[in-house]
Nucleic acid binder design. Structure first.
Length: 412
DNA sequence: TTTCCACAGGAAGGTACGGTCT
DNA sequence: AGACCGTACCTTCCTGTGGAAA
């Protein structure tokens, strides 16, 4: 009997090397940045007090990859020259306040069975615990704070950059490496924190098309069999990646999605057509995830705008959207949020790229207002908001966009 | 030049909730 | 148990804005 599952390796050699977590042995296309970074880390090996380093650049430009790569090398060197060095990495994704960051760091330094709860402690206690944990270490301690811009206040940075001066820590030499996706983050910091954290600044510019191409080629060599990729595939991935802001991570994911698509279709090789379709899927998936995560009233607001779009009534000014939104709320007997609140939903949508909006100025005869329109297919939004729509009943204007059985929902 | 429209969006503060501490 | 803490999500209040009208 032929086994149902058979090894399927006509395309991939090592598909895993296209995953986000994979750290390549060699970093491509970031030579200048690596050089600067190395120089900034050098004092550590000399046994000097480490400089604080601030790294910034958009997502997927190699900040984290280069950091991990160099810190690995640094630890190797430290071992070799018998330098006492500890590296602590804290990813601030999912943390929004200094308080959470401080607790996370404490837990990072503790054994799992001694972790403290994420809420409820007085601030002062959390910092006391943190200093205690740090004082248990010795030699040079490097704390890497990845995605540091997710933290909205700078108490944590203030505390930690001043910890030594204030005598909270002794016995160790503390160095910080802050990694930020947001280049404006630096300016928002308190002046004292800024001068301290940003002793050395290294900026990572977006990858250009050529650099992306190099990165992709490097990965494709390990991941795919020879001649598994048609000629235009990598250039196209690079070009699309460049359009998406020079994000290598996304370009690599795109290549993997294209490969997966080719594999499911039992194609002999990955073609540019696979890449294009993968790109579409990727975009749709992204906005889908975002829309599903919106709160009830955010979804209703988006739904209101969507019905207006279906009626060809967009761009629509905020008060028109609010009117429609209020109708939906009243229809379902739910309390509408204030217009001010809904306006902030709309401005969030724009940040999330779900909508586009523009200010209009009509002088004395109309004042200032903002007009909004959808930046996604109506069908995609309707699909993502399925659950909400079925609960509220489909508006007549969007019946035609419903998957198949429009009758399932009571039309409004 | 000044006035004034109709909002935009920042700031401050309130409330419910889920957690800890003593 | 009840004081205390931080957060998410709201509302209220209010100053800012660009250009047509006066």
């Amino acid at each position: 009997m032929t086994p149902r599952f058979q090894p399927d390796d006509t395309l991939y050699k090592r598909r895993n090397t296209l995953k986000v977590e994979y750290v390549p042995d060699d970093i491509v296309g970031r030579d200048n940045e690596i050089e600067e970074y190395e120089a900034a880390l050098q004092p550590i090996i000399n046994g000097e007090y480490p400089d604080n380093i601030f790294i910034y650049g958009k997502t997927g430009v190699g900040k984290t990859a280069v950091t991990n790569f160099l810190l690995n090398e640094l630890q190797e060197s430290a071992k070799h020259f018998e330098v006492d060095l500890s590296v602590i990495t804290l990813n601030c994704d999912g943390l929004s306040t200094s308080y959470q960051a401080a607790i996370s760091l404490v837990n990072n330094l503790r054994e799992p069975e001694h972790h403290i709860a994420e809420t409820g402690h007085p601030q002062s206690k959390v910092y006391r615990l943190l200093w205690d944990e740090l004082n248990n270490l010795s030699g040079t301690v490097i704390i890497v704070l990845d995605e540091i811009d997710h933290i909205t206040d700078d108490t944590f940075l203030y505390q930690i950059t001043r910890a030594d001066n204030n005598g909270y820590i002794d016995n160790i030499q503390l160095g910080l490496i802050g990694i930020s996706n947001d280049s404006t983050f630096r300016e928002q910091l308190d002046a004292k924190v800024q001068s301290s954290l940003c002793e050395t600044e290294i900026s990572f510019p977006p990858y250009g098309t050529k650099e992306l191409q190099k990165v992709l080629e490097q990965r494709a060599d390990i991941a795919f069999h020879q001649s598994a990729l048609e000629d235009g595939v990598i250039p196209l991935c690079a070009a699309l990646g460049r359009q998406d802001g020079g994000d290598a991570r996304r370009a690599i994911t795109l290549l993997r999605k294209a490969g997966d698509l080719a594999r499911t279709e039992n194609a002999d090789s990955v073609t540019t057509d696979h890449v294009e379709r993968a790109q579409e899927k990727l975009e749709a998936q992204q906005s889908m995830d975002i829309m599903r995560d919106l709160t009830e009233h955010e979804q209703l607001t988006l739904y209101a705008l969507t019905t207006l779009a279906a009626e060809d009534a967009t761009p629509a000014r905020s008060r028109v959207v609010y009117q429609r939104y209020k109708e939906f709320c009243e229809y379902q007997g739910r309390d509408p949020r204030t217009a001010r609140r809904m306006r902030s939903f709309l401005s969030d949508f724009e940040i999330l790229n779900l909508t586009l909006s523009q200010m209009e100025h009509r002088g004395q005869d109309g004042g200032t207002y903002r007009e909004h329109e959808l930046n996604r297919d109506i069908a995609t939004v309707v699909d993502a908001l399925q659950t909400t729509i079925s609960e509220f009943g489909a508006h007549r204007s969007i019946i035609e966009y419903l998957p198949d059985s429009g009758e399932e929902f009571a039309a409004m």
